[in-house]
Design a protein around this nucleic acid. Structure first.
Lengths: 124, 124
DNA sequence: GAAGATTACATGCGTCCGCATCTTATGCAA
DNA sequence: TTGCATAAGATGCGGACGCATGTAATCTTC
């Protein structure tokens, strides 16, 4: 069990570091930015901030800022929610969709590299 | 494989957050501080900063600061290395050993809680 | 043994994060 | 309706990180 934890720590550290480099250098995205785009693309619809909050492992405040960065980069837009004017919809833009499409293979390659280099993990 | 990554992300986020709370509130330690103490106790000898760097998933600069914090809390001491005067030995103090001993059950409990609540993980 | 390359650790700096709190909007009770 | 509790999202603040660089010691090559 402690071995599982060490496995998680090691893989997380290595993968995060590699993703940060690869996504940052090649596509100008951080891991959190990519993750948010990826979730929206995966659902293929606009999402409330709160919905995103359940899917990405970020605090609400961190997510709010990630979305702000993405909006500044014109990769998403914040749309008002008419049924609940407190809420906002996060909509991916065509540029955002394109950026995600070009970054996805990079992410997959990095993860494949990292998760196939070592044998396996015994279940917890 | 992408599932493995999501598993790592989820467990890492949940465990780190829980450890930060539990270790911080009950023992005044951050996860990194605990990890460094744990590595030293595990080896049961003083370690060079560089040796620690290979074991904890931190940059050299971050580790340097963690050790500085631990030293300020009197949980470790930095001892000069006579054979290589660039080097630093990180020695755990009796207080550091005691703090680690009291924090270890907390860490184990948190990890057990998190890694037994969900079934398992298929090997990558 | 002197000069430059390299290594070990420290530190300035910018970024991202979480917590606490603020603002605005909704819901519910009197 | 009015008033208060609650919810969604934004923001001030402090902390921890990584990168790049600085400082000091060691190694290498001549």
């Amino acid at each position: 069990m402690i071995d599982t934890w060490h496995y998680v720590l090691a893989k997380h550290a290595k993968a995060m570091c590699a993703l940060e480099r690869a996504l940052g250098e090649r596509h100008g995205l951080g891991p959190s930015e990519f993750e948010v785009l990826d979730r929206i693309v995966h659902h293929d619809r606009k999402l409330r901030l709160q919905e995103l909050c359940d899917e990405v492992h970020l605090s609400q405040s961190a997510l709010s800022r990630v979305v702000a960065r993405l909006e500044k980069a014109a990769l998403v837009s914040r749309d008002a929610c008419s049924s609940d004017r407190r809420g906002i919809f996060v909509c991916i833009t065509p540029q955002g969709r394109a950026r995600h499409a070009e970054a996805l293979p990079t992410q997959r390659a990095v993860l494949k590299e990292i998760f196939t280099e070592t044998p396996a993990l015994t279940a917890p």
